[in-house]
């Protein structure tokens, strides 16, 4: 776990630091995740005339008394149809790593998942530096999961599932 976390941080840091120098940067919060009591943060970097790269992290710990712990980190590459980043329609692709631990009625699922899939979204210009983004996406999740319940010992399973990749109602602020 520790080594995975460390690896995650290294990847994120490497990605951000490569592009962060002298680029326009935005920060955002996904209101949908926040509504689920899951603090999250997204950092976006404008990488070209019509492309941006975003990194986000979200942590959820037993929201609304649900037995759920979730740590996810992802990156998303967006291509803006309007040729102006953070404005109007985009299509993109998302890569996300999640570590989860979910328990319901003694039925516990915990493990890691790597999720990959396309996304699409629309940005509304609220002001010079403010943007409201609505986004969604779905894709495939490659799971390495352990499943256990009261009666059976833990079983490790690998699998691929079709999952929603993203559901976002994000407020984004352009810093520079």
């Amino acid at each position: 776990m520790k080594s995975r976390t460390l690896l995650l941080v290294v990847i994120l840091w490497a990605g951000v630091s490569h592009y962060a120098s002298a680029q326009r940067i935005s920060v955002g919060v996904n209101a949908a995740e926040a509504a689920l009591l899951s603090p999250n943060l997204e950092i976006g970097i404008i990488t070209g005339r019509q492309t941006t790269l975003h990194f986000d992290i979200c942590y959820s710990n037993n929201p609304y008394n649900l037995s759920l712990r979730l740590l996810s980190a992802g990156s998303e590459f967006k291509c803006w149809i309007s040729k102006s980043p953070l404005n109007r329609l985009y299509v993109g692709g998302r890569l996300q790593y999640s570590n989860y631990d979910y328990c319901r009625d003694d039925d516990r699922h915990y493990g890691d998942a790597l999720i990959l899939g396309p996304t699409v979204g629309y940005d509304f210009v609220l002001g010079k530096r403010w943007v409201l983004e609505l986004s969604t996406g779905c894709g495939a999740a490659f799971r390495n999961e352990r499943h256990t319940d009261v009666s059976t010992p833990a079983v490790t399973a690998y699998g691929i599932s079709f999952v929603p990749v993203k559901l976002g109602i994000s407020f984004i602020f352009i810093i520079a």
């Binding site: 326009r24 102006s84 010079k128 530096r129």
Partner: peptide, 11 residues
Amino acid sequence: EYSINLLRKMD
């Protein structure tokens, strides 16, 4: 909208 987006492009 153009005005705002251009402003962003012009840092």
